[in-house]
Design a protein around this nucleic acid. Sequence first.
DNA 1: CTCTACACCAAACAGTTGTTTGATGTCTAG
DNA 2: CTAGACATCAAACAACTGTTTGGTGTAGAG
Lengths: 207, 207
Amino acid sequence: MAEQLFEKRSEILRFLARRSGEKGAPPSIREICKGVGLKSAQTVHHHLGRLEGDGYVRRLDDRTRTPVLTEKGWEVVGETPLLGRISAGRGLEAVAMDDGAYSLTSELLSSRSGRRRYTLRVEGDSMTGARIEEGDLLVVEEDESPPDGAVIVALLGGEKVTVKSLYREGEMVRLRPHNNEHEDIVVPAEDLCVQGRVVYVVHPPSR
Amino acid sequence: MAEQLFEKRSEILRFLARRSGEKGAPPSIREICKGVGLKSAQTVHHHLGRLEGDGYVRRLDDRTRTPVLTEKGWEVVGETPLLGRISAGRGLEAVAMDDGAYSLTSELLSSRSGRRRYTLRVEGDSMTGARIEEGDLLVVEEDESPPDGAVIVALLGGEKVTVKSLYREGEMVRLRPHNNEHEDIVVPAEDLCVQGRVVYVVHPPSR
DNA sequence: CTCTACACCAAACAGTTGTTTGATGTCTAG
DNA sequence: CTAGACATCAAACAACTGTTTGGTGTAGAG
């Protein structure tokens, strides 16, 4: 009955995702029981163990009431639209957050990987190509080794703060602005202190 | 010693905010004890009660391990730089948060006028000129009579949901997309049901 | 048929939870 | 000085936590 197993697993996963976003805290094992229609805590305990073993879920050392989704877990859940659901041609009622399937706050500010996030206000116009303009607000996630091509926030020479795309080239790193009027900056890797990765850009609609 | 009281209160509030963002789950009362340097669970229990009474914190019906900040609570925390908590690198403080007092949460989600806000996912490319593109997340504030020129979300003929700029022309209204390839739509005012006004656009940085 | 694997259940366990009770010390107002 | 408000503590409580133990039913492999 491997299929139905997966069924229950992902149901637990979705329930976990929903509750973690909706409320402030993840549910307890017995809450999950009710949520997914099971009658024994042990069953959920069992599934949680598997989910953790397979890397979908991580429990903090703390233990009590702290099963949180990993990246992998969120991917699975992501298949079912977790974020806003505006399906074409419906009234807004179908869209409003009433039953709260989505919490913008937690989506923006709580990292799935446990890394911390903070906000920055953009100065300068070097990143207009990446849809980042002066005055925009950036949600930055702490990340000391982001992937190549990521938009990052970095300290240059211990002084200047810049927002650029990052590319590694041997012992050097290339910082590429997304504005044709600016030129790439290439510096030794040790001169660069990567502070974090830009995960979201927030701004008003321009007119 | 009312001052020191407030001191401990806001210390608890900050600890709560930090842990809620950092980990997946809020701390327990005894964890808060250690976190803010108290020795009795009752003391924290007492403070939490006050914080809840004053509207800074809300505990879910569930009770266990679920003290979460309210908007009001976030605002207080925001005064002391919560989001600008850039530990490792100095230099970032220079850029972090304009005047040091800013809360993304309350800025995005709490309307000053008391109107409700909700989020929408964008479909279609008619608003690229207003820095709104397909897949973006919109923070929309309920507003039945937004000012001319505002970017609004509206129901057209009770069916289609559109995002356009609004201009009134006598008994008609003109809906202007911000994309040269699309043309204006002019309809009788009574055919249009304005749902709200777009206050923020949220999206990842493009590469 | 037997063996193993799986999903599920019920009951009991020790540890932790929020909460209550009772008490101490320190301020301020009357 | 007394009375009240406040912050703090220690100890004990029932309720709930994750976990363990033992067991049932179903499916497929040998």
